[in-house]
Structure formats: structure tokens, C-alpha cells
Amino acid sequence: MGIVILAFIIALVVGVVLALIIGAAAKAFAVEPDLRKEALEELLPGANCGGCGFPGCGEFAKALLSAESSPECCPVCQPDSLKKIGEFLGVSVEGKERKVALVRCGGHNGVAISTPYNGVNDCASASLVAAGGKGCEYGCLGLASCSRACAFDAIEIRNGIAIVHPDRCIGCGHCVDVCPKNLICMVPASVDVHVYCNSPEKGVTKMKLCKASCIGCKKCVKASDEDQMISEGFLVRTNYSTPPNTDLIAATGCPTKALKLASIHALPEAPEEVEP
């Protein structure tokens, strides 16, 4: 019985000694918690997307406190939370425009010619084999490289093409670099009218491969005010500095429906995509 009590006493003594050492070390080596950083992190989205260029929200908060970065660099923050961060830091935050990704291809399986491909399930690898399975060299391969790169589930692969959900996209731009066809660009979220085609080829060539391509008929250019739509070769695109409003779709009557509203394009059963 005596040995049990002895062991108990030894454990107790060791415990007390260690506790004293830890207690002393905690006093001696105490680090002042940066309350400002913690409070700032509370205001940041906490998504750790890296869209600001820093490894995560914590590092971004540090950078903000040391004035290495500015609150606008966060692509996720909405205007109201930006304002709060600005108040917290005591700097004025300029209202920034929210940007979203745009995949400039509307050639889904129903309209675009494509051939079966059964190699590596990755856009960059697929584009090495006959430039991908799509008939159109410039078109979206629909193998979801961008969708996998998106941390916010904003890109959906439906019917063979990548479709961005503008409401979910926070504009971190991760998808832009992974697209081997350079189809994705960042556009202001306020603009809804886009041309879903990126092929610079002639209209005849394009129409053979994809019935939803922009044939460069310039109907939309004529229907819009000056400088709202830009025509480059056989391809028209929205001028994002002076964008047209949504009435343009009805006013144009795009023959191939390449001119679309992003919000409608993202709908589960986009009405304009239903085959007549």
C-alpha cells in the first residue's frame, strides 16, 4: 500500500514543479496578443481564398495593419464590410467595383460539335490532344479545371461547358489562370450583357462548328449606343467601361443567341437554350 501512496506523492510533486515552471514561462515569454489583428480578422471573410495575394486572411490582416495593403484588395468583401474595415483602420475606402468571372463560350453540347475524348480528365491535358475534343479550337472543353480551382463553387459544368454563377463568384480570379483556352476574364458584376464566344475565325467557319457562336453580324453594335459594343474582326464584345443595359438583348435579336445575359445563362434551365 505504501508504494502506491509514494507513487501518488511523486506524481503530485512532479506535477506541481512542472506547473510552476510552465506558469513562470508563461509570464516570462508572454506574447501580447494583437487585439487589432484579431478584431480585423473578424471583419474579413475568413475564406482564405488568396485573392488578395496573401496566403490567407490572417496574413492579409497583418498586411492591412502595417499598411502594406489596402482593404480594396480583398475581392470577397462586400461594400458594407469594406466600410467597416475602413472605419476600423481609420482609412477611407473607395467603393470598388465587384468583379466576377466570365467564361466566354456558350457552345454547349446541344449546339457545338465535339468528339469523344477519354484521356486525362483535365482541360490542360485535353488541349494537348487535337486541341481538345471540341470542334472549335477556342471553345470550352468542359472538363472542369476551372470548377475545381474555384473555392466558392461558383462554376458549374453543365451540358459540356463551364457556367459561372455571378451571385456566388467572389472574383478571386483563380479560374483565369487554369483555363488553357484563355476563355475566362474578370468583368464588372454590374454588367449583365456578354457575348459568349471567343473564336476570332470567320462566321462561316464558326457556324460549321458551333451554332451559338458570334458570327460578327454586328446587329448588336448597330442596336446599341456608340461605344457600348466593340467589334474586333469577326467577334463582338461588350465594352465594359461603357456597358449597354439589358434591353439590348431584345433590341438586337442576336441570330445565334451568343449575346446573352449572364444571370439568365446561369439559370438551371436557361429559357433561351431550350431547343424549339
Binding site: G119, V120, D122, A124, S125, L128, V129
Partner: peptide, 13 residues
Amino acid sequence: RPLTQHCRRAKTA
């Protein structure tokens, strides 16, 4: 396994 395609991807990258 698509070994050759992987090698090709690595070479291009």
C-alpha cells in the same frame, strides 16, 4: 494509365 499524355502535359507545362 495515360502515361504518355501525362509526360506531354509535364513537358508543355
